[in-house]
């Protein structure tokens, strides 16, 4: 924590959890998709479902999906901007059992037809907890710089990734692997101390068996 966590963040109101956190959830989904989205199907549960219009949670999620940050004054008009830019958006309120009160599920389709989905919650103060990416169970908060490495479950892949990180002197604070089945698609969620350079990102992306590497920066 530093003084700018208290006198800050600079954000679009009205609520750090319902607005700023929602922008970040949208942004995570957009980053994982890795291209401009043309279709967003959004499900809202709990308190998000009850108060999403009054808090502008809908606008915030869409703004994030369009790549905006939580202090972007265009958030207020994001629904109109989405329409102008050819992003079709749908909202549905649902009950997700045992989910955090502020939970959203976002399913995106990109320009190339690629798809990405996340489930995550806004857990207060603009902090988020992402629990699912492309159907794979993950767990990261966005409090630390977080690398999400989507890959094929092949021997040596984890060692190769962590080796490159070691060469770049990036310290790992938390590591989680999710692998629903042997040899299939898997995801490493790696929370790190300090920054991750573009050079490291680029070298990770071209390693064998890597599908995509996404960096989600801390607040």
């Amino acid at each position: 924590m530093n003084v700018f966590d208290i006198i800050g963040p600079v954000m679009i109101g009205p609520s750090s959890s319902h607005t700023a956190g929602a922008v970040r959830l949208g942004r995570v989904a957009w980053k994982i998709l890795g291209e401009t989205a043309t279709k967003a199907e959004i499900q809202l549960s709990g308190s998000f479902a009850q108060t999403y219009r009054g808090h502008g949670t809908d606008k915030a999620l869409v703004a994030g999906i369009m790549g905006m940050h939580s202090d972007d004054e265009r958030i207020r008009h994001s629904l109109e901007l989405a329409e102008e830019q050819g992003l079709s958006v749908s909202f549905e309120t649902v009950e997700i059992p045992d989910a955090h009160p502020n939970t959203a599920r976002i399913q995106l389709t990109g320009q190339s037809g690629a798809k990405a989905s996340i489930q995550g919650a806004s857990i207060g103060g603009g902090n988020i907890l992402v629990s699912e990416v492309n159907g794979l169970s993950v767990s990261f908060t966005g409090q630390y710089n977080t690398l999400m490495v989507l890959h094929y479950d092949k021997p040596g892949t984890i060692a190769a990734v962590t080796n490159f990180m070691a060469y770049s002197e990036v310290n790992i604070g938390n590591f989680r692997l999710s692998r629903p089945r042997k040899g299939g698609e898997a995801v490493m969620t790696i929370e790190v101390d300090g920054d991750v350079s573009d050079a490291l990102m680029n070298s990770l992306k071209i390693l064998p068996n890597i599908i995509n590497v996404v960096l989600i920066r801390a607040i």
Partner: peptide, 20 residues
Amino acid sequence: YNGAMGKIVAAPTAGSCGIL
């Protein structure tokens, strides 16, 4: 302004952003 989706400084939170 916070309630109207304006740009504010959370200080320490958005709900209490008018006091400083």
